[in-house]
Amino acid sequence: MTDLKSRFTGVFTALVTPFRDGTIDFDAFDALVERQLEAGVAGLVPVGTTGEAATLSDDEAEALIARTVALAKGRALVMAGAGANDTKKAVDKVRRAEKAGADAVLVVTPYYNKPPQSGLIAHYGAVASATTLPIMLYSVPGRCGVEIAPETCATLAGRHSNIVAIKEAGGSAARVTALRLACGPDFIIHSGDDGLTLPFLSLGAIGVTSVVANVAPDVMVAMVDAFQNGDTHKALKLHELVAELTDGMFIESNPGPVKAALAISNLAGPEMRLPMVPVSDANRERLAGILGRYASAASNFQEMR
């Protein structure tokens, strides 16, 4: 478990999927991944929520996972999004991710169905039995309408040795303590909310699955590293540096704002797949201002490192 925890420690970037004229822009994707690797992120998360997994075909998702694995070349752990609200489909997605070479899978709670906790136990049990890959549970009640109870998490971890982690995106730092008390200190916890990364780390989480890292991977890596190295003052300064940018990533539904920010920065296009659409003109202008202020503040970043 110690080695596994070390592999899940740090910043995991929830990668966007760039599109051009309705198809995946692989050239832009490759450049985005390389930028993340150069910044020293610990993990890459293709085909998650930020990657618009809901509107990707199975073949597109598998191709993106395989491409991420090939680009990473072992420099970062590849944790593929592999959730569905149909258990049979989730099992198939996990198997496809394993076939594509993923190191781990991120499996969101079934959305729309709103299963009871017993349903979550059965669902995740079927997924865990279908793969040998490490599984990170993903609790995001704001999108899925159901939260994984700490006791449910403990049951799953006790029954399935490959259920090793959770991405907690319920917006409450208190959940970290509840999960640690239920599951024990060796169970891996990631923050699923960029703005809560620092308080989550202070309570025992060991990493973040990050949206804002698409735009500012170096700062996110430096912040988490600073905290883990005991420099809480520096970690707080870096948290404050990226705070407005973090808020900006959620002025509309993810991944609209982060795609707009990448487009403003000439890193990828803003195109999305329906029913998602690019951010409003007013919010794009607002994001441009945020990025400008961030760039100015980050000019001192090298000194802070």
Rank of each mutant, 00 (worst) to 15 (best):
H233C: 10
A282S: 13
P134W: 05
I264R: 11
F29I: 09
G40K: 06
R20M: 06
A126H: 09
A126Y: 04
V215R: 00
E271F: 07
A174Y: 03
Y124P: 09
P278Q: 07
A288F: 05
A82K: 08
T13Q: 04
D58C: 02
Y138R: 13
T152V: 01
A169L: 11
E38A: 15
N85I: 01
Q302Y: 06
V91M: 01
Y124S: 13
A72H: 11
M276H: 10
A216F: 13
D58T: 06
V219K: 00
P18Y: 03
A80R: 02
H239C: 00
H233G: 13
V41K: 11
A226N: 10
A282W: 06
L156I: 11
Y124L: 13
T131H: 08
A216Y: 13
R293K: 14
A63R: 15
V219N: 01
R96M: 14
R286E: 09
N113I: 00
T232M: 14
A205T: 10
V78L: 12
E240V: 12
G207K: 06
K114P: 00
N113F: 01
T87I: 01
L236G: 03
E147W: 05
V108S: 12
R96D: 02
T197P: 01
V242L: 01
G256L: 04
L291E: 06
I188M: 08
H123R: 12
L120R: 06
A128C: 11
I251Y: 09
E98K: 09
L32F: 03
G289A: 13
M136W: 02
R175V: 02
L71E: 05
G119F: 00
D3H: 13
E168S: 11
V16L: 05
E38K: 14
L179P: 05
G204M: 11
I148Q: 08
L106M: 15
M304H: 06
A42R: 15
G292K: 03
P270S: 14
H160E: 08
P185V: 08
F301E: 02
C153P: 03
G74S: 10
T2I: 13
F26A: 11
L37I: 14
G184E: 12
T131E: 14
T132K: 15
K89R: 15
V208E: 01
D225F: 07
